[in-house]
Design a protein around this nucleic acid. Structure first.
Lengths: 133, 133
DNA sequence: GCATCAACTGAGAATGATTCTCATGTTCGT
DNA sequence: ACGAACATGAGAATCATTCTCAGTTGATGC
């Protein structure tokens, strides 16, 4: 349960910087491509490792698309959830205190411990609602 | 938006029967292995196709594990969510009317339409809490 | 019962994201 | 600067899922 010491490397700084620069979710693959095209020398494995480690420590935010792909984003506050536009990918951070409490209460009621939950809302945002149907 | 006509084949019946027989979630791979070891002649692709088609029509229930694997189960009622034990895999169906309403309300408040959501709760059930920690 | 045709099937290849391997490169403590 | 442990990265390996396409089978008409 204790976090291991982590060395400060050029690659990790590059990843962190790339995340800080923007506020949209990106996959490890995208991030890797962007870093490479930005001149950085970094391997895909390192991007995956670093993103997972950061997400693990709660330093960045992660969500999984319906296609099973993991997306990452620089994340601010503690625990929250996302409203994702399935057309343009825009995301809105939402706080889900109620839903959260409900999840924990429900799980506890059934005798479950060590409870975690995933909650993502997918839809079409106002800008994209007009187009395809 | 209209469901295509579907022929009644031996394979689909086998899959449906296998699902009806039990009440736990299984992956397409597991289901395939079970059908094969049960003497059925069925291909993996068919299992995947059929499960997806059934889930698509809402005839069976599907959830995605944290590892990104899709699990299926014969499903009764309409929309609901699951409480999954991460140790023994036991699942409890829970109704999440409140959480549901919250999700829709929140999404609508942000101008989103065509809203869907995923909500899974993972934890350790009472039977498994005693063991490993 | 038999022919016909389109939908269904299935073995294996293809795909695509993620993880693993392990030799090499870096960081950190001294 | 030195050494040792940790990090890196190119590419292979893994693993679930999807695709391909020729052969099979169910539904239908006669």
């Amino acid at each position: 349960m204790s976090e291991r010491p982590r060395r400060v490397t050029r690659q990790q700084q590059a990843i962190t910087a790339a995340l800080q620069g923007r506020d949209d979710f990106r996959s490890a693959q995208e991030l890797h491509a962007q870093l490479r095209s930005g001149g950085a020398t970094i391997g895909l494995a390192t991007v995956y490792r670093t993103l997972q480690a950061l997400a693990d420590e709660g330093l960045i935010d992660m969500l999984r698309t319906e296609g099973g792909e993991s997306l990452y984003r620089a994340c601010s506050r503690g625990h929250h959830h996302h409203l994702v536009c399935r057309t343009c990918g825009r995301t809105v951070e939402v706080e889900a205190d109620d839903a959260e409490r409900w999840a924990i209460r429900t799980a506890t009621a059934y005798g479950f411990t060590d409870v975690e939950h995933t909650l993502e809302i997918f839809g079409r945002c106002a800008s994209c609602s007009g187009s395809g149907g």
